[in-house]
Every structure is written in structure tokens, then in C-alpha cells.
Amino acid sequence: MAGSTSEKLQVHWAKTRNLTWLVLVIWAVFSLVIPGFAKELNSMTFIGFPLGFYFCAQGSLIVFVLLIFFQNWKQDAIDDEAGVGE
């Protein structure tokens, strides 16, 4: 891992940015796209729920919670790799 501190920080920031984009895409799918197609999804059921209703009332919420824990886990790894973890 040769390279100056500023190079390391540049790599760190590039990785952080990519992770953030990934998180934002997943976020947009579950907060905007899926609820928008609730009508179509309601023709299916999941554990007894109409699927469109399920996502708006529960499914997307579970994804958000897991998504933040996932992002933090990945971000901690990125920080540690660049030597800027705590």
C-alpha cells in the first residue's frame, strides 16, 4: 500500500462516493419506485398481505433499517482500509 496520505484519502473518498450512490439507488427503488407501483403489486400476495400494501406498510421500512446497517458496515471497512477508522 504505497502512496501518500492524500492519495489514500482520494481513494477513500472515491469508494465512499460509490457506496453512497449504491445506497441512494436502493433507497430510491424502495421509497419511490415500488410504492408507485402499489396498484400492480397488489395483485400478488405475500404472507397474506396484498404485496403493494405490504411494501408501503412494512417491507420498505425493513429494507431501510437493513440498508443503514449495511452501509455502516461497508463504510467502516472502507475507513479502516484507508487508515482513517477510529
Partner: peptide, 24 residues
């Protein structure tokens, strides 16, 4: 009914933005 679930999604999904863009 359904239109109101927009508050539920909005008031939880916002934390993804807080975490990804702001808080740290």
C-alpha cells in the same frame, strides 16, 4: 388508507438520507 402510507415511508426513508448524506 394507502395515500396516507406515504407518511410512513417518508418518515422512515428519510433516515437513509440522513445517514448517507449528512450526519457523519
Amino acid at each position: 388508507g394507502y395515500p396516507y402510507l406515504g407518511f410512513i415511508v417518508g418518515w422512515t426513508g428519510g433516515y437513509v438520507l440522513v445517514n448517507a448524506l449528512m450526519a457523519p
